[in-house]
Every structure is written in C-alpha cells, then in structure tokens.
Design a protein around this nucleic acid. Structure first.
Length: 152
DNA sequence: GCCAACGTTGGC
DNA sequence: GCCAACGTTGGC
C-alpha cells in the first residue's frame, strides 16, 4: 500500500469529473514522462491512495482523494494518430506508455499549494520542491496522514 | 505572458 | 557519451 500525488489540469480532468464518472472510475492516460510512467507501471497497486491535485489553474492544490483501482495496461492514446498523445515510436507489440484506473473517493476542500507550503509536516513533499514538475509523485504515509487530517 | 527548471533530442 | 538547443511544465 502506497500513496501518490497525481496532477491533473482541471480543464482536462477535474475532481468533479472524476467523482461524476460512472462508478467514479477514470482511466488515467496521456502520461508521457518516463519517471511517472515507471511509477505507474512498476509500483502502483490497487488500493493505493491518491491525492488529486489541480495544476495549471488559478488555484493549484489538492482538491480531493482517490484510489488506484486498475492497471497498468497499455495507454491506447499512444497508438491513435489523431490524439495529442500519439507516439509514433510506440507499437502494439512494444507499447511505451501505460494507463491506470483511478476511482474518486471524495472531493475535499481545496488545500492550496500556498497553504501546503506553510505546513512543516509537508515540507519534504516532492511537489513542493523547487523545479519539481513530475505529474505523479510518491507521498509518504506521514504526509498522507497530515493531509487527510487537514482536509477533515 | 514570463521564466526557471527540467527532460528530450540529435549532432558530433 | 557530451552537451547545446529546443520543448514542456507549471507557478506566478
């Protein structure tokens, strides 16, 4: 059992979208960074906890909680030449990118990036480090606990 | 829109 | 394998 922070642009997929989707299950596709892919492919397991983070928006921060409920499996968008996630170097035989399934658990109040920076227990979070851009990052149990407490 | 930081590409 | 150039991310 591990914990993750996953970034999403709310214009693309917001916490509301995730909570409103059938069975609250959403396919997570379009990750095109090897480090993030490796987390999905090698480490994520069903039941892992997810901090759902809104990025590239007026108020970036954690907007809800979710969990991993499926995958990994090949990301279909890598084979779709019409998709902005198309990858010409990926083949059916040798897929390059994977998807996982996420299920929304709850929409929470927004724990903004600015507020997160003020909390000592969170200072080592990868997402708070200077220059950090990874869309999927591991979260420690202590960080998860502190955040869940703040969101109650 | 700016720009710092990081990742990827490709020439050599 | 090095590294400059370029592209992307994402907060502000």
């Amino acid at each position: 059992m591990q914990y993750w922070l996953m970034k999403s642009e709310p214009d693309e997929v917001s916490i509301d979208d995730v909570m409103a989707s059938p069975n609250e299950t959403t396919a997570w596709f379009g990750v095109r960074n090897y480090q993030a892919r490796n987390f999905m492919r090698d480490q994520m397991q069903d039941g892992d906890g997810v901090l759902f983070y809104h990025s590239s928006c007026p108020e970036p921060g954690i907007a809800g909680l979710a969990q991993i409920v499926g995958g990994p499996y090949p990301d279909a968008s890598q084979f779709d030449s019409k998709s902005k996630y198309y990858d010409a170097k990926a083949t059916q035989e040798q897929p390059r990118w994977v998807s996982i399934d996420v299920q929304g658990t709850q929409k929470t109040r927004l724990l903004s990036l600015a507020e997160m920076r003020t909390i000592p227990a969170l200072e080592d979070m990868i997402v708070l480090q200077k220059g950090s851009r990874l869309s999927i990052t591991p979260v420690t149990p202590a960080q998860w606990k502190a955040i869940v407490k703040l969101l109650k």
